[in-house]
Design a protein around this nucleic acid. Sequence first.
DNA 1: CATGAATGAGTGTTCATTCAT
DNA 2: CATGAATGAACACTCATTCAT
Lengths: 205, 205, 205, 205
Amino acid sequence: MATRASKQALRPRKAPTQGRAEETVAAIVEAAAQVLEQHGFEGFNTNAVAQRAGVSIGSLYQYFPGKDALTVALIRRESRAFHDDMAAALGMRSGKAALEYLIGACARQQLQRPRLARLLDIEEGRPAIQGEVSKAEIEQLVLTIVRRAAPAHPKPDVAAGDLLAMIRGMVDAAGERGEQDIHDLEIRLRAAVFGYLSRGSRARM
Amino acid sequence: MATRASKQALRPRKAPTQGRAEETVAAIVEAAAQVLEQHGFEGFNTNAVAQRAGVSIGSLYQYFPGKDALTVALIRRESRAFHDDMAAALGMRSGKAALEYLIGACARQQLQRPRLARLLDIEEGRPAIQGEVSKAEIEQLVLTIVRRAAPAHPKPDVAAGDLLAMIRGMVDAAGERGEQDIHDLEIRLRAAVFGYLSRGSRARM
Amino acid sequence: MATRASKQALRPRKAPTQGRAEETVAAIVEAAAQVLEQHGFEGFNTNAVAQRAGVSIGSLYQYFPGKDALTVALIRRESRAFHDDMAAALGMRSGKAALEYLIGACARQQLQRPRLARLLDIEEGRPAIQGEVSKAEIEQLVLTIVRRAAPAHPKPDVAAGDLLAMIRGMVDAAGERGEQDIHDLEIRLRAAVFGYLSRGSRARM
Amino acid sequence: MATRASKQALRPRKAPTQGRAEETVAAIVEAAAQVLEQHGFEGFNTNAVAQRAGVSIGSLYQYFPGKDALTVALIRRESRAFHDDMAAALGMRSGKAALEYLIGACARQQLQRPRLARLLDIEEGRPAIQGEVSKAEIEQLVLTIVRRAAPAHPKPDVAAGDLLAMIRGMVDAAGERGEQDIHDLEIRLRAAVFGYLSRGSRARM
DNA sequence: CATGAATGAGTGTTCATTCAT
DNA sequence: CATGAATGAACACTCATTCAT
């Protein structure tokens, strides 16, 4: 039957306790990444993912209760890497250095697998998925850094959201354009970020 | 999905000669907007659009050779409004005023029908559609304005791309968050835009 | 019709690995034969075939990438039987006996399931299918036999084509008329074939 | 509504009494011929025919109650020409000359517009059309000629059917192969026809 | 626990035919 | 009478999901 269970858990079906199962899950998630990356939304279907992972479609459903759960797992995997990278920014001495590190993390993340990152950004917005993946943590992180870097800013939470949005916008566009030069991109991102903050702090927002 | 003809015109199938037909075409495009807006990609199918437009599926295909052509028509409709609004910026006396007008146009456009705008931004990137809708014109427009507003900028074309991307990013995010206050958004956009430009001009990029 | 993918493989999609699958494939092909036979081109659609085969439409498309591929498979099945029968003619001692055997094979083949044979003859000519099924082998076979039976014939290749065409014409017509008496038909075919050859050899063609 | 009236007259809707109407009808029929010839069954639809005829689809349905009626009219037009040509054979002095003339008529007919002729041969066999077009007359004609040419033949009606079928088979195949040389084809047809008759008469059929 | 055959609702698209203008 | 906009049944084909083996 093709009916899609209206409300389905988006968490992996089982916490794989055995090593082999863990490998299988990882293989499936990576396969999902590759299929999405290479064939876009149009080609992103469970059968293709299973085949690419070298696993039967039945096995895929053994570990993931549905397609969306697989997508969520992929988003989580990418987010985790991103988050870990960003978290290092908190260790920086100055707020400015922290912000610069953060910018670098964004640029790195996006330019590594640009198409994948872009498509996942879109998936993240899907109502079926939204809420399952918490941008909250990352926004919290940025907020902390903004507070340190621009203590005078009247609305640090708004600023954090804006900065994230504008970095993401620029960095996605760069990925789409096929830019490779991370260094150049970082310089422009810094101009945007620090420009926004210095202006924003001055004004009475 | 039934088979999709490999290479299909994305241009409307026929120019309606009778008045009745023009109404039908407009109704279909508006229906497409509403369906996309309310039900997202998942619910955006030709049958739903036809039904919402109050016409038969056959009528839809009289005027649009395929689903993508319909999407393109919708994007064009929205782009035209946007473009016309932005073009008014060229008439401003100062470069700064032009840029500010441009920012306002973006904010207005996006906050009018935020979800629609966001989804169309994404559709625009689909390989099947890309190239049919020219971002070129809009980028050209922004470039002109950047040149006037920041004549000293070393790479005005890069800046134009960056500005568009960061405005789009911020404004999409605002729409997603459900922001309504255009005025506030505009202030923040100005901070971002002018901040980026002032920093960028100073540096040796 | 849903969109038809412009260029689609006409070969079966997958070689069934389980026994169950082989049965399914055979059932589908036989169902195709029956539907075509009973309802003609007009009634020959994939849903009807699947239903007749007692499988879901999805199963049909697991094994055949499209309707034409199914048709090709059916043609191949019938051709194989025909070809095997005809090939036995090569074992005959005299050329005359070989030709007579060949005539018999044609008559048998066509009168077994006359309507099916006729309709497949037509399908074979469809541009979408032509080339996928090689008449070449059969024509080669006839050519060999003609050379043995009428060594003096000045243009054996032309003769082979003519003979095949006239046999097919007569035998199709007989099938259409509902003739059952293979023996009588064979006698007339022999008159045509040997008549053509004896006249053709005499003349300076 | 798309329902096809189950039983519909296949006769033209109205005997056009005015000259203009007659022209329109003729234009539609010729358009049908051209569309069928150039685009095959797949492209043979009423809208295409109307457009090619330079007439609205509504007008087409003014003169023909349905698609099949149009097909029938086309078959009739071609049959008439063919019949008239063949009828001249009856004026020949000898039976042999009559048969030869008949063969020539067949060859001419088919090689003039080979694809059209072939496709119409197929259409003629469609149950929806069969019976509307009388092969009877033509078979009667051939029968008469066979009787004169081979008075000793035991089953002239069977022979007439066979001859027609084998001529049609050879001549269709020739058309399909793209043969142009009518003279050569006629020679081979004579070999087949006279060969068949001489053999058939000898035997006790 | 893995496999992959089977399912069928859903979707894009066509085209014969009707009918208001 | 001509027009062409409108109709909708019919059909090809996909893909998330299930379940017997």
